[in-house]
């Protein structure tokens, strides 16, 4: 009986929290005028923290992911005598899936967790209450710019990731293994379509950017104002956003590539 009550409590609490999160998200959107009116003062700084500081990890991981894809792809493809198709393999898997997804996972653990910790700590040290006291809207002043900074940074990071991955694949396949360079690029260009593949990849990364930043900001805003609460919220950000990225990716892929 007690266990049953516990389950019910969890479900009701979860739905309640989801509703609160949705309202938080909508309010952020409604009050985001400030982020654009004071774009250089507020949002620019957040693009720096979310985007520029994530550049190194995105570039390095993109390069390595592309290199591994090329090595593994070559290993399998050469058994069927079509090692030139390694360019197609690397480019399609990066542009369609790995670029947006892995970049978003890295973004969630690099920038998302930092956002949660920062806002959680602001709340714990009562900076947010102080702002409210001074009639400064914390959603417009603190949450909005971070949200838009993240949403703007994410597609750029995903594009950089994919481009670096293709370059890494080129390094391994053409420079190291010696696949014909012309065939590598031309087969890639034959198979990758601008609208079907690249634009869809960008759409994916925008959706992931919205999801990851919204989750990170909400977890920070909703964190209990203690050291333990902030640390738990940070963990939850990474777990929830990773799950959200993978789940959304499945749904988006099912919509985008069902006919192919």
């Amino acid at each position: 009986m007690k266990g049953l009550r516990g389950i019910g409590n969890h479900v009701v609490g979860g739905v309640w929290r989801l509703g609160y999160a949705t309202r938080f998200f909508l309010v952020t959107l409604l009050r985001s005028a400030t982020s654009f009116r004071r774009f250089r003062g507020l949002t620019f700084r957040e693009i720096y923290f979310a985007g520029v500081l994530s550049l190194i990890i995105i570039i390095v991981s993109g390069l390595f992911v592309g290199m591994v894809l090329a090595l593994q792809g070559y290993e399998t493809l050469q058994r069927y005598g079509s090692s030139e198709a390694v360019g197609t393999l690397v480019a399609l898997s990066l542009v369609r899936e790995l670029g947006p997804v892995v970049a978003a996972l890295l973004f969630a653990s690099r920038a998302g967790s930092a956002m949660t910790a920062e806002i959680g700590l602001m709340k714990a040290t009562e900076q947010i209450s102080a702002m409210e006291m001074m009639a400064v809207d914390p959603i417009a002043r603190v949450i909005g710019p971070r949200f838009w900074g993240g949403v703007i940074s994410m597609p750029l990071l995903a594009a950089i990731f994919s481009a670096m991955g293709v370059f890494g694949g080129y390094l391994i396949a053409v420079v190291l293994i010696g696949v014909d360079e012309g065939a590598f690029w031309s087969q890639m260009q034959n198979a990758v379509d601008f609208r079907e593949d690249i634009v869809n990849g960008v759409i994916k990364s925008v959706v992931f950017g919205v999801a990851v930043t919204a989750i990170s900001l909400f977890e920070g805003y909703d964190a209990p104002p203690t050291a333990e609460g902030v640390s738990r919220a940070t963990t939850r950000t990474v777990v929830t956003s990773s799950l959200a990225i993978l789940g959304l990716d499945f749904i988006l892929t099912a919509f985008m590539f069902k006919g192919v």
Partner: peptide
């Protein structure tokens, strides 16, 4: 950052896709 990101998009559009 923005220049590199947009350049990456252009590379994907022109060099990788058809």
């Amino acid at each position: 950052f923005v220049v590199v990101g947009i350049a990456a998009l252009f590379i994907l559009a022109l060099k990788v896709s058809n």
